[in-house]
Design a protein around this nucleic acid. Structure first.
Lengths: 224, 224
DNA sequence: GCGACCCGATCGATCGATCGATCGATCGAC
DNA sequence: GTCGATCGATCGATCGATCGATCGGGTCGC
């Protein structure tokens, strides 16, 4: 029955959320298990019924985050065949994902060094697979003559670094809504890659706003 | 002569270098006083003859790094009056600085949260002054009609994030030398800002030197 | 002998982790 | 319907280790 689901919030879920908050806020090594227990609303001893160890908890969180990001990227790749459109969709997905879950991103990007052993290797491998998807898309766009950059590897790194930064400063209460921000990042990415001014700027799903095509760099949208 | 300088390496300097290495490698909270002492080649007790506390040491390192970066940026701003050229010079300086001293950058960018109180405010203020210099340059370029972006604030953040990333992956033993890399970043920055192809450096029409880097992009870091 | 520099020993606090015990819910046996 | 057995979840208490920091005393150049 649906009634079987615990009403308020499963303890394990509260632990995960508390861990994301504290690890993002004070870092993995800067967070004690007592703080973690307090934030999650139980004792430090009870914590160990929901996790193997502090490091295993971190590893599980990072792996889950990366697996979802990779799955979303693979879905995008399966949906968009044209390299230009695929890259735009990747940027859109990446920016939205990072803007919606900034805590996860800060932990994933900043605490890899805190992991050791096979778990770390697994996380690094997941991240590499995600980046390989971007690299392949950029290469395809270059082969198709849609992009114009001297070094695809450099462009990929610059692009990813730039897009991931969203998680470090985006404020959902700010003047720019996340879907609009994602579209601005698409424009930046296209400019950075020297993309030809073909289409590829459609907004999928829940954004009803009609997009005016700007061939180079438009001033059509308000800065706010 | 500078005979006053101790020949091998002043202890205080060794401590600073060890701190940069360890803080960048394992994080501030992940580094113990004893590890720091061992790396610097003295006892943990002697460490306190060269620093007030662990946090004061971190604060001093970050302040010095940021003060030098800011000074270099101010020198660039005083030298270049044209917004387009000034921004190119800023990018060049930023990339070179971050490529030459990656440890400092990783500490400055990643350990701000480890600071507390007035020291933290001071470091944040320094970082803000540095970013304000970029922002003013981008605004000036927009007013002069040299750049074409919808949001200068967004462009500034994307630009800085992209350029700082160099410190996280640049390998001096790699195929691309740092000055060449800086020029590639200048090109990327100009493309990102929609810069008019007038004043700047070489436009990507005919680059005098066909730089290409093709190192494998799945460069997994060893799990230690 | 004085100050700069360094050390071994040790402080109280906190770290991550474990222990045995308790509580309420569930279940099969009768 | 009731009773003991079992279970997942939680707790207070506490473990040994390590944390950042301090102290008193040593060594050496001046």
């Amino acid at each position: 029955m649906r009634a079987a689901e615990t009403a308020p919030a499963p303890t394990a879920q509260r632990v995960r959320e508390a861990a994301f908050e504290l690890f993002a806020e004070r870092g993995y090594h800067g967070t004690g298990i007592r703080q973690l227990a307090e934030r999650a609303g139980l004792s430090s001893a009870s914590l160990y019924h929901h996790m193997g160890s502090k490091e295993e908890l971190l590893g599980a969180l990072m792996r889950e985050s990366l697996e979802r990001l990779l799955a979303e990227a693979q879905a995008v790749a399966a949906r968009e065949s044209d390299p230009g459109e695929r890259l735009c969709a990747l940027v859109r997905m990446h920016v939205r994902s990072h803007g919606e879950r900034p805590l996860e991103t800060r932990v994933v990007d900043g605490e890899v060094a805190a992991l050791t052993g096979p778990v770390r290797a697994e996380v690094v491998a997941l991240r590499d697979r995600y980046e390989a998807l971007w690299h392949a898309t950029i290469d395809a766009g270059l082969d198709a003559g849609q992009f114009h950059v001297t070094s695809p590897a450099l462009a990929r790194r610059a692009l990813l670094e730039m897009c991931s930064g969203v998680a470090r400063w985006f404020d959902p209460a700010g003047p720019t809504a996340l879907p609009d921000l994602a579209e601005q990042y698409v424009d930046l990415a296209r400019a950075l890659l020297g993309a030809t001014a073909t289409a590829g700027r459609r907004v999928d799903g829940d954004t009803p706003r009609p997009v005016e095509i700007s061939e180079g760099f438009s001033r059509s949208r308000a800065p706010r």
